[in-house]
Design a binder for these strands. Structure first.
Lengths: 195, 195
DNA sequence: ATCTAAACGGAACGATACGTTTCATATCGA
DNA sequence: TCGATATGAAACGTATCGTTCCGTTTAGAT
């Protein structure tokens, strides 16, 4: 699933996309319902009504399957321009937290975090995602810059990265409900430019 | 190991502290040398030359043993007063990162983070440690307040917590060598009070 | 000094998940 | 039509799990 299959040089049946779909859905469902400690190839195969060899043929390891599930479930978080940088940042992170709480994405991402503590491929994926998030959040700040809400000579990436760090820590420590803390954190990160 | 044994009401051999010591040391060594994926009760027992029943008698689960190892290795990070809050915070976190890199503590803490993603007891320990760190870091800021470097009416806990979030994320993503990033992050977190 | 309760290390248990192999069946391309 | 390949199901040997038994050692009670 990681890469597109190159042009065939031989005859034979093609990969069953229905099976791949069922495997990825089953994996996501197990992570969402029972968490990473229950995530096993056996369990995924059983739930997907697939054979274990089918999974091992296409995913070299449990971690590879996990990362595929993770990439598949990524969805953009809605981000509205309210005209206030602090509100934009707060609303964005509040929506992210809500998404983590109410969809499988939180469980899946927590699993990637866990896996990354002893798996370099997962750690690499985590670093890439952090960079992506930082860039996205910096975009919110850039938007405020063009409004003149933020001085034009500042670097938005430091504050954007710190927002990412805060969000991740809230997730991994199980603190996604603390809206008051979120409000204070965002305010502190934005305040250097708005005082 | 978690709690002191209460007064005995019956005869018999006492717990072997030498064995407990060997088990905890073996567990820490395995985490440091081979990481959390190699951390098994079997491996700990073998390395400590202890029996598995001895481990299970005193620690109800692998997670409980991990948390005991984690609490046992905690050491205070040296923290000097340079007269500059930014330098104090930077130096403290740089020392913390060096400690995480060069002692088993980094591997052990990463394992606790991993475990906390599917274990509520570990997640609880993580929240407690975060609070402890936040309080400690806030102390560095309070010290600057008494010097007059920081306005007396501000709340140091938000910035202190954001420093903790940044440090943890650098650890879990494997970015402990980025001193330049650390410098920028600390500067941004401190700047609201020093502009 | 002897007795006895408890902890010890070692060995083995059944259970579970691992990754692999075998097999009969289904599916596609030449 | 035919041959190559993917599929699901089942079984395999291995490893670790958490537990149980066992014989030995330790130390408080008698």
């Amino acid at each position: 699933m990681s890469e597109k299959i190159e042009a065939r040089h031989s005859v034979g049946a093609k990969r069953s996309e229905a099976s791949a779909e069922a495997i990825l859905n089953a994996a996501a469902a197990i992570l969402a319902e029972k968490g990473y400690s229950s995530f096993s190839i056996e369990a995924v195969a059983k739930r997907a009504r697939a054979g274990k060899p089918t999974i091992y043929r296409w995913w070299p390891s449990k971690a590879a399957l996990l990362l595929d599930v993770y990439h598949r479930q990524k969805r953009p978080i809605p981000d509205h321009d309210t005209g206030s940088l602090e509100d934009d940042a707060f609303n964005f992170l509040r929506e992210l937290f809500r998404n983590w709480r109410e969809t499988p994405s939180g469980s899946i991402f927590r699993s990637v975090i866990a896996e990354a503590q002893s798996n370099e491929a997962a750690a690499k994926a985590l670093r890439a995602y952090r960079k992506e998030r930082k860039t996205h959040t910096a975009g919110i700040i850039e938007r405020a810059k063009t409004r003149g809400e933020v001085p034009s000579d500042i670097d938005p990436f430091v504050a954007a990265d710190l927002m990412t760090c805060y969000a991740w820590t809230q997730l991994l420590a199980g603190n996604l409900d603390d809206e008051e803390g979120l409000r204070r954190a965002v305010r502190h990160l934005i305040s250097p430019w708005t005082v």
